[in-house]
Write a protein that binds this DNA or RNA. Sequence first.
RNA 1: AGGCACGUAGCUCAGCGGGAGAGCACUUCCCUGACACGGAAGGGGUCGGCGGUUCAAUCCCGCCCGUGCCUACCA
Length: 785
Amino acid sequence: MELSKTFDSKAAEQRWFQLWIDRGYFTADPDQPGEAFSIVIPPPNVTGQLHLGHALNVTLQDIIVRMRRMQGYNTLWVPGTDHAGIATQNAVERDLAKEGKNRHQLGRDKFEQRVWEWRETYGNRILNQLRRLGASCDWSRERFTLDEGLSRAVNEVFIRLYKQGLIYKDRKLINWCPRCETALSDLEVDHKEQRNGTLWYIKYPLVDGSGYIEVATTRPETMLGDTAVAVNPEDNRYRAMVGKNVRLPLIGREIPIIADSEVDSAFGTGAVKVTPAHDFNDFEIGRRHHLEEISVMDTRARMNENAGPYAGLDRESARKRILNDLKSAGLYEKEEKHTNNIGTCSRCDTIVEPMLSEQWFLNVKQMAEKAIAAVRDGRTKFFPRFWENTFFNWMENIHDWCFSRQLWWGHRIPAYRCQRCDHLMVTAVRPPKCEECEGTDLKQEDDVLDTWFSSGLWPFSTLGWPAPTRDLERYYPTSLLVTGFDIIFFWVARMMMFGLEFTGEVPFRDIYITPLVRDAEGKKMSKSKGNVVDPLELMDTYGTDALRFTLAQLAVQGRDVILSPDRLNASRAFANKVWNAARFTMGNLADAPQPIPKVDASQMSLADRWILDRLNDAIREITTAIDRYEFNVAAMKVYDFIWHEFCDWYIELSKDALKAGDPRQAAGRYVIIHGFDQMLRLLHPFMPFVSEEIWSVIRPYIDEADLAPNLPIAKFPAPREEHALNHAEALAMRHLIEATEAVNSLRALVEIHPGKSVNAIIRPRIGGNGDSHAGFATDLGRFRN
RNA sequence: AGGCACGUAGCUCAGCGGGAGAGCACUUCCCUGACACGGAAGGGGUCGGCGGUUCAAUCCCGCCCGUGCCUACCA
């Protein structure tokens, strides 16, 4: 069969992927033998499209999954997508806005329908993009976090946690996004340093007319909700004032001066205004001292009726007016530059407002302790190891999780309230009547769950939990999780907690944390910077194999991946190199395809046995590197063996031996085809398409004994000891290589210095008297001629 | 404020106790029947700085400088 001069990646990609699917190579069967190896994919959001982060994540998973499958493991890789509550809702709302509509005009049902349509389009798009990368997932087991089955798991978990008293509803201070108009968890708030912030000093007059107490604040607009002024009990400046009242400027309410040891005397004036309804610290002080909690803003962060004359103003305008009015009243002292942190919504960047609100919470303390223990005793291991510190750090300081969201897209909370007696029933299906008063007017909670609540169940909900399925029994706990560090808290931690709580086992044995992909300048890719590279374009230009190989090569543990066109070019050249090695090999085999019979090691030349020895070495190194998730090491070794050993040396050395009539031909043919076969299998996890394409061509030449059905499930190579070289042989080969290089070196020197003797060229380069070296060089010179 | 990671050739990065490496870029030569997405030969580095441990340090320890990231209720 004739091979074209260059490898046509696109045609191969389509042909082979389809064939793999058609033949069911990726479909897992729990009833087949083999130790289980399972991975659940981190489900991509249905909002977006494939970016390089996904490409890296999926490539690494595919490499290990393909290798395990070839090693004979009973392999399952579950694919799927995440409904991504707030992110998707925002995306669809933006889409609606283009038509001049908003969700409230549509109503909840119509809006939800619209999001389902969106999910249909974009969810499928991203899954196709994963397939384009060659992801060998079991596509027949595709899941979606809002599927019926997964929703059942969500309800089950909710109800069990509620019954255990871990889920509760409470009116507390929470993070609120005034644009998304929903509660957020602590994790969904980004903290940004504000360098040009201001600290304002304001005088609060004492009610008894004995003067003022001065407070410093960064948020004067919240003073309308002040219910105390606090000082440190040790602070002598204020000791006499504790217990007195002050009159809140502008609105005249009387509030007490209290003592609380949390107040830092060294900051500002040492006296702090206390606004329990708009500041987390103040909320704590307020609860300690039983202060009133006065909320002065509405859900869009506009001043509400409690703000008196400022009602209706937004936060910024209210601040300006208040500062002006304080100046007019002579109660404004001064301002200072002050650097502080402000919290913003991680989804829309709006400044988050601490708000007093009734929300659902999950007490995670005990679950967190179990998760910590599981990592401490090694039931689950992080790679690289240092991420464990990050995990512990957060888990040890974990707070209750505010998981209810005032959104429309997500799992609606399975709780019903009787409209007559206000009784609350937590149950998966709507009860016929109130269990207290028998009233029939029951209303389901409007809120939905934080999207991470359902993805936190992903490793077992996708396998059928709570039903005791065969998949669960066979494939859970999963073997490995491959994900980014940015969702260790959001996702990994929650899966650990839920997994241990509901299955009694860790959800995965190993966690491999992938590096972050950056652009050629080392900048983090983001849409706003406009430096996002589309992996699809890269696959079009360089081929999927080249993209995959490049990503694997750069995937160094604990280091960011910086992708450059140079690297991609090199990988594409590598694919081509392998392709051309195949062309050479094919040209040296018998015309009629027939299996090349196995040749005993004793019949082989030194070069034959050397390359098989090197192959053994490569197999060992590549296998252990992937076992350790050192993808870069494995990829480099594949590259080095194929290019610098097989092509540079073995093919060159075998050219003569493969000629017709040469006594070494039979052995040479066997070794080159056998070596090639093994080499392709090593390459396959990294570059599935070229390897499969070539393999399909050389397959007829491979001896029956070595044949396996097809590459995706062909056996991964194992070292063969009969090919090992002894010390003297290895030395002889090394000397041959070194001598060849020396001769080439000399040849080049002679060409650069025409007319000069070899001695004249060598002597000055060696230094000393150089006699012995020069003699050697002279010999080489003769050898050359 | 604390924590983590990283500083090795022009660029992007491997290596991590005893020979300084790869890819790309650069210089010279070669379209030799697998491959110019190729081949051959080269130039280029006080392995961030300063101390310490060691017979021996790019690699271990300490401090410093620089870069990036994460966590944190200082108004």
